[in-house]
Design a protein around this nucleic acid. Sequence first.
DNA 1: AAGTGGTCTAGACCACACT
DNA 2: GTGTGGTCTAGACCACTTT
Lengths: 238, 238
Amino acid sequence: MNKFMLIYNQMVDKIEKGEYPPSTLLPSENELKDSFQTSRETIRKALNLLSQNGYIQKIRGKGSVVIDITKMNLPVSGLVSFKELAEKMGREPITTVHELSLIHPDRELTSHLNPHPKDLIWKVVRTREIGGEKVILDKDYLLKSAVPTLTKEVCEDSIYSYIENQLGLQISFAKKEILIEEPTEEDHSFLDIDGFHNVVVIRSQVFLEDASLFQYTESRHRPDKFRFVDFARRRPTV
Amino acid sequence: MNKFMLIYNQMVDKIEKGEYPPSTLLPSENELKDSFQTSRETIRKALNLLSQNGYIQKIRGKGSVVIDITKMNLPVSGLVSFKELAEKMGREPITTVHELSLIHPDRELTSHLNPHPKDLIWKVVRTREIGGEKVILDKDYLLKSAVPTLTKEVCEDSIYSYIENQLGLQISFAKKEILIEEPTEEDHSFLDIDGFHNVVVIRSQVFLEDASLFQYTESRHRPDKFRFVDFARRRPTV
DNA sequence: AAGTGGTCTAGACCACACT
DNA sequence: GTGTGGTCTAGACCACTTT
């Protein structure tokens, strides 16, 4: 692993264990440079990562303040799969696969997924169950040219971990849009949403390391189980 | 302005104008270094900014691909005030101030805003009107110790621009939480939400440059006017 | 082999905060 | 003035892709 990543991880540990307490200053970049036996620019890379992820605030002329994370509910927003999410919340997730098929894209799907002509698309429809209730309906569309095979078992576990660990593909970024809609008949038939008047719809486009779009997902959440946390800096960390 | 910022801005221009077309490679870092007459590390800072903001994808051994932004609806999520937001959407926003008062924090507010004992808090209640309909209810709480004076005129314009331009304070980051709730009586009396069964609630803590928390905001949106866009990278850009 | 981006170094100068 | 973080440089070596 990179040197700056090792330093970053060690410093995250120390912050989370309270060795660098909230609202105090970290050692200066020059002190850290000496104690980690590296150059200042490498220290700065580690500190910039801490800053981007909401652990510290750098103040010119003063130092780097440890931000009080007890007031900050969750990690930074990002690409998190359902499985990771549920595990973090300490619940046992149940995934049910309702459909797994190869389709030709229609016009709407084409506008979201940009397939080459004649590309086939995997369509996966799944519900997610937490605490005995079906609260999430996921409709995934994946380019067959990127993911040649897909099985029910993979879909019941985690498509992401299959793609990254088995196929060796790297997911690099995603664009998401969050909207509120009224439940469709499909929502009513797959989810436990009696008495709810809205669903939260998250539409995502997911891209691989070569910037190619390979997946479009529509994730429909019962509103009472939806929570989104965001940490945003006003200025870039360079 | 910084050199890397100038280079970044120029390259954003070229990408948006199509001089660097989507899905093509940028000039290599060494070529850019020569043409901008700078060092490679400075070029890399500009490129990392482009990467963080979703303009390019860097691929080791190959180059930097321009991402097709026509498929990406809006700029990266971040701290955007209502005024900036409405102006971007080309609508004339109307802000109505319903309350502007100094209060002592109760227990719930204390937990969100962490005031010193005896700190007074500005409470500002405003509605936002777009297209003739009141669709957003904003309840802001600001530490008087950070913002000594506040007027109705400022609240009707933009509290943020007053804080940054008049007071000279720098807002540095914010933590947001997005949830769906049922409308309260207050929502019904201030907003045009007849026939809607949910509101989108965005609770934010806003921090200054010295990492001090100075504002807590609850922003309540009519669900049909709510849209949140997010761009997330899986790996850090360093 | 040549070219690309990724990492790391050592040093310089600057803007800013403290004392 | 001293110490802090912010910027910039020139050079080196590495991992990876392409020819």
